[in-house]
Simulated assay, not measured.
Amino acid sequence: MSDPVRAAIAVVLRGHEVLLVRRRNPPDAGLWGYPGGRVEPGESSEQAALRELREETGVRARARARLGCLEIAGEGHRYCLDVVLCSYRSGVPGAADDVDAVRWCGCDAVISGRFPASRDVDRICLRAVAFH
């Protein structure tokens, strides 16, 4: 099997809320998750997470820490997602690029699984809150 595609996700905290997007495209179409996408050549994971965050939501943040890498594999795709914890700076969230909705969600609701979400969204939120 080929090497995984490097990607990064932005876990943006604002108080007791986290920013989630609902994906428009497969493999996670219709599910809530974190803004993110591929790491471009010459870009760090932190830079990619912040760029994807702006492109998908219009929100600006500051990268604080890497929380690890999440391996995602399925039919026709394999990713290594660097999880980047971010602090909200500015912007009103709006859906753009490859998402059809964006919203601030209570961390408790995310951790308890009240959203139809991509794999490990709840676990990542719990880790971000504990680190924060």
Results as ranks from 00 to 15, higher is better:
Met1Ala: 09
Ser2His: 09
Val5Glu: 14
Arg6Met: 04
Ala7Tyr: 02
Ala7Phe: 00
Ile9Asp: 05
Ile9Lys: 03
Ala10Val: 03
Ala10Asp: 06
Val11Arg: 00
Val11Ile: 03
Val11Pro: 00
Val12Lys: 00
Arg14Gln: 01
Gly15His: 05
His16Cys: 05
His16Val: 02
His16Thr: 04
Val18Trp: 00
Val18Tyr: 02
Leu19Trp: 00
Leu20Cys: 05
Arg22Trp: 01
Arg23Val: 01
Arg24Met: 09
Pro26Thr: 06
Ala29Ser: 12
Trp32Gln: 13
Gly33Val: 07
Gly36Asn: 13
Gly36Ala: 04
Val39Cys: 11
Val39Ile: 12
Glu40Met: 01
Glu40Ser: 15
Pro41Ile: 05
Ser44Lys: 12
Ser45Thr: 05
Glu46Arg: 13
Glu46Met: 11
Gln47Arg: 13
Ala48Arg: 11
Ala48Ser: 06
Ala49Arg: 08
Ala49Leu: 05
Arg51Val: 12
Glu55Ala: 12
Glu56Cys: 09
Gly58Trp: 08
Gly58Ala: 11
Val59Arg: 00
Arg60Glu: 14
Ala61Lys: 06
Arg64Val: 15
Ala65Met: 01
Ala65Leu: 08
Ala65Glu: 11
Ala65Arg: 14
Leu67Ile: 15
Cys69Asp: 15
Glu71Lys: 03
Glu71Cys: 04
Gly74Phe: 09
Gly74Leu: 02
Tyr79Thr: 01
Cys80Tyr: 04
Leu81Cys: 14
Asp82Thr: 07
Leu85His: 11
Ser87Lys: 08
Tyr88Leu: 14
Arg89Met: 14
Ser90Arg: 03
Gly91Val: 10
Pro93Asn: 10
Pro93Trp: 06
Asp97Tyr: 13
Asp97Arg: 14
Ala101Arg: 15
Ala101Thr: 14
Trp104Asn: 03
Gly106Thr: 01
Gly106Leu: 15
Cys107Ala: 06
Cys107Met: 15
Asp108Tyr: 13
Asp108Trp: 06
Ala109Arg: 10
Ile111Lys: 00
Ile111His: 04
Ser112Met: 11
Gly113Lys: 02
Phe115Met: 01
Phe115Ala: 03
Phe115Leu: 07
Pro116Ser: 11
Arg119Asp: 01
Asp120Glu: 12
Val121Leu: 10
Asp122Gly: 07
Asp122Gln: 03
Asp122Glu: 01
Arg123Phe: 07
Arg127Ser: 13
Arg127Trp: 14
Ala128Glu: 00
Phe131Leu: 00
His132Gly: 15
